[in-house]
Amino acid sequence: MGFKRKDLLGMEDLSKEEILFILKTAESFRAVLERPIRKVPTLRGKTVVNLFFEPSTRTRMSFELAEKRLNADVLNFSTSDSSVIKGETLLDTARNILAMKVDCLVLRHPSPGAPHLLAKKIPVSVINAGDGAHEHPTQALLDLYTIREKKGGVEGLKIAIIGDIAHSRVARSNIWALQKLGAEVRVCAPPTLIPPLVEKMGVRVFYSQEDALKEVDIIMMLRIQKERQNTGLLPSLAEYIELFSLTEERLSLAKPDALIMHPGPVNRGVELPAKLADGKRSLILNQVTNGVAVRMAVLYLLLGKS
């Protein structure tokens, strides 16, 4: 099979077969990253624009590296130096960039659906690099890749996603993706950070981390935005840490070989202590490495054709 899509917008509408195809393709790129020359000429002559309307260092760097390792020309464009502040709409900005003859837009935007709007209105490929609290498909793909690499598969695993589910695109993309590949997903947070009717997505909801961690294979910690304590969602960060920070004691409730993931950047001492973030059960750096390979695969599958 080939990958027939023009855009990568979210995990919700990808089939299991498509997901597996991307992951399989990513394996080849993962191998490229181990070579002395970590670069292939595949997207020579193609131009990719990273259009970031939200501050992001690591996702942008990961995409940029993936693009460069495929030999694409890369243009970075972020809020501070965009003309959006002058009242130009997103669509105007995109059309202006397109007029310069580019082949792909990688979009990070605070509004859910922003990449969908571009995908509908412009003829080149659009990759969603995170749209508000909606989706972050390449993050879910790299998480799947990392889990498969370490656990041999995803089917049948018990996975707990812990943290601000309500505002997390990583949570949503992973909930869809993990379940499509046969995992059992639990979410855990204070009720103010659990979105309404989330259980209809197929997950089990826990308010107690101790209960959520029982017998799990993978613990995904989500970054908590410190601003949440000022909006009536949390009494204080200190209370959140006391109730929801991962500790060694809580970790012991999970399976003995349970592994820890985090999409980064980690608030050390908030979501988890440095000792666990840097420990041997942490997959955080594997996620970062695999992120480049997965994004190379996505770029190749979308752009390596006429």
Binding site: E12, P112, G113, D131, G132, A133, H134, E135, H167, R169, R172, P195, P196, L197, V198, K200, M201
Partner: peptide, 13 residues
Amino acid sequence: NEGYTSTILGLQG
């Protein structure tokens, strides 16, 4: 509307 659809779309309900 706040509900399942707002939850999956990540839009404020």
